[in-house]
Design a binder for these strands. Structure first.
Ligand SMILES: [Zn+2]
Ligand SMILES: [Zn+2]
Ligand SMILES: [Zn+2]
Ligand SMILES: [Zn+2]
Lengths: 170, 170
DNA sequence: TTCATTTTGAGAATGAATATCACTATAGGA
DNA sequence: TCCTATAGTGATATTCATTCTCAAAATGAA
């Protein structure tokens, strides 16, 4: 499930195996076909880049990892892949939109994000059952108090990544 | 403390009393003066607008509530007020940055946000002790697993506000 | 009143994201 | 295989929230 022993509730980046990779592209092709969209070479490049990076990535990181797919093509396809529930937008800490594979495609299920306030790095972190229970309870309280119908949540844990901490200790 | 009886952990908008209002402006003036900044009429208008709205507000809402302070002035002063820890930026659900008074100035302390995915409305919600405890535990686990030094968190509960739900039931 | 410093605000510039559109690639039928 | 309708591409133009510029106005100290 992408969790190394003793790693608690925070995941490291885990590369998909070749078999998982085939499975991924099969699922993407299916999701696209139900919306009469083709799984083109450029889209495959983008999906491959997202899987390879294993964390929410900026457009710049993506076009570089996706072998120089043009910006306009990358943006357009990320939008289409988003509508097909292949890609999810992640609001960054800096002003940059980031993109990641949808939870059911990335191997890990529901998760949250850890953000470095210094360099903007974003990594995934699985949520603990206790945290999810507390969130569900909060959602209930809000529905009661404000009539707001809470259907999901976004959690970002903000701090300093290892390399930024090392760099600060100069 | 801004919490009506029986409202659980989700706050409604609460107007500051005249006394609280004087206290607010005094604190703002102090925070600005320590950074050699003046508490000008325009800055006072903006702070008054933020207090009056009582929820994270967009630039458009602010310039309207602040009696037509020019856009460039509003942006510049929100930036200065941010550096002075008077104002906090809230990343919106839509693409719009929102601004709110710093927690210690708005009467309520640490809180989270409830976002309507339909109209973009953002309101405040106090956090329960159980939720905060679970968040602290998660932060500890992440520090252990990734070396990430988590110092704060941002939580958005996403759903549908009452008026958008009513509008959908047409 | 000077005069140095800060602040203002209209307009210009920036830049991430989106829209355009002529061209290319592809699927499917003839 | 050849056609053709449709979908996709990518260089370029456009949008628009946000930031920058800078001459004029306000402020405070002397
Ligand atoms: Zn970092
Ligand atoms: Zn993620
Ligand atoms: Zn709404
Ligand atoms: Zn708030």
């Amino acid at each position: 499930m992408g969790s190394a022993p003793g790693s608690g509730y925070a995941d490291q980046v885990v590369r998909p195996s070749p078999a998982e990779d085939r499975e991924l592209h099969g699922q993407v092709a299916l999701l696209l076909s139900t919306r009469d969209q083709r799984y083109t070479a450029q889209r495959r490049q983008i999906v491959r880049a997202l899987a390879k990076l294993g964390r929410p990535a900026t457009i710049g990181e993506l076009v570089e990892a996706a072998n120089g797919v043009p910006l306009s093509t990358a943006y357009r396809n990320l939008s289409i892949l988003g509508e097909a529930n292949v890609v999810r937008r992640v609001g960054g800490a800096d002003g940059f939109t980031r993109f990641e594979l949808a939870e059911q495609l990335s191997g890990q299920h529901h998760h949250h994000h850890v953000v470095c306030e210094s360099c903007g790095l974003v990594i995934d972190a699985a949520a603990s059952p206790a945290l999810e229970a507390a969130l569900a309870e909060t959602a209930r309280a809000i529905a009661k108090a404000n009539g707001f119908d809470v259907t999901e949540h976004r959690l970002e844990l903000v701090g300093r990544c290892t390399s930024c901490r090392d760099a600060a200790a100069s």
